[in-house]
Design a binder for these strands. Structure first.
Lengths: 200, 200
DNA sequence: ATAGCTCACATACATGGCGTATGTCAATCG
DNA sequence: CGATTGACATACGCCATGTATGTGAGCTAT
């Protein structure tokens, strides 16, 4: 029975390694994380790592992909939970993005080490889901005439970049709560520049 | 005669090491750059490095400081060369910032490895001059009533973040020229969200 | 059922880089 | 002019990555 034991175990070890990677990379940073300790912490050796992910970078890529997926899911959910207009959803998504980036895990791994080690996020296999959804929403809004006819991809990158950098700022802030509010406020105001008509 | 020979030599070796650092860090990235090769390339050994900069990070910090200064100087010059209103200067600064970030040297060292190795830019000793000037300009504009009363620091971070990310995107683009234009266009439009009244 | 193969993972080894401790020689100072 | 400082070189230890090799548990075919 259960003739897929090999594959099962494989998935389990992959999951364990990714989980350990999230922890180690988040707490110590990519460069300082020792693969020996990391693998030992889940009862394995480096052999498993290099077999499953090729190299250290491969593990980081896997971790980033997982985080990226979670971020996009949460942002999307935040947008739909609000249930406003497309524009409001877009803003909600951006704000959720800022808030997600407050988690040290996301910050350190996706925002700091990720780009440095893996290169530009838009080139990642995970395709940076956040960017995708932002771009799609913008294209829709432009088609509807609600947003000025700018290049959607460019605008999406600007918005995401702004949100990302805000998160970086807030994370190092003395008063994260207060600065988060300021950032959200400024983000909304900035975003209004894209609208064809100022909001009521 | 010339009773400062020690200090002179010191400055020269520091300059040589920083120059070599710019090259090596830009071409190979921080992690992959070998301090042995780097120092040998200017006829020195690692001894000089650790004496002058403490450690590898110290050299990166010095390199970043130098680049940051150059960036700010160029941006400021671009703004004053245009000679428009404060708002136009601010936009010109932002655009110059995007263009500067297209240089692989700046990209790799200041934007990718810098934050990963040294932490959030706003905490750097160089204080990230770009942020400072942007914040100052915004505060002035807010005081004059031209810009909506948002938090200047937050808005500055958003603008800088947007510009930075745009540069990252353009650098990896298939058609940098075209995408640069799109980014500048979108940047201007986005920025207008901050104005109390839309431009004529 | 079992012989043989596959493959996930462990073990062992080679390479190279960082940081530090120690040495050396020229420039300064009394 | 001898002593001291300090800029830099040399030498060493430690550790991390990546690879080559070993091994034992599962799948497969007769």
């Amino acid at each position: 029975m259960a003739p897929g034991k090999r594959a099962e175990m494989m998935e389990e070890t992959r999951a364990k390694l990714i989980a350990a990677g999230r922890k180690a990379f988040a707490e110590q940073g990519y460069a300082a994380a020792s693969m020996d300790e990391l693998t030992a912490s889940v009862g394995l050796t480096r052999g498993a790592l290099y077999h499953n992910f090729g190299d250290k970078k491969g593990l980081l890529q896997a971790v980033v992909n997982q985080l990226d997926g979670e971020i996009a899911a949460e942002a999307k959910e935040a947008a739909s939970r609000l249930g406003g207009s497309v524009w409001e959803s877009l803003m909600a998504e951006g704000i959720a993005y800022i808030e997600m980036a407050l988690k040290p895990e996301v910050q350190r791994i996706v925002l700091l080490d990720g780009p440095a080690v893996l290169g530009d996020p838009s080139q990642w296999p995970s395709q940076n889901v956040c960017l995708q959804t932002t771009t799609a929403a913008l294209e829709r809004l432009i088609a509807e005439g609600l947003v000025k006819p700018v290049d959607a991809v460019a605008a999406a990158r600007l918005l995401n970049g702004a949100a990302f950098n805000a998160a970086l700022w807030i994370a190092a802030s003395d008063d994260p709560e207060a600065d988060l509010k300021k950032a959200i406020e400024a983000f909304k105001v900035l975003g209004e520049g894209l609208l064809t008509r100022p909001p009521t």
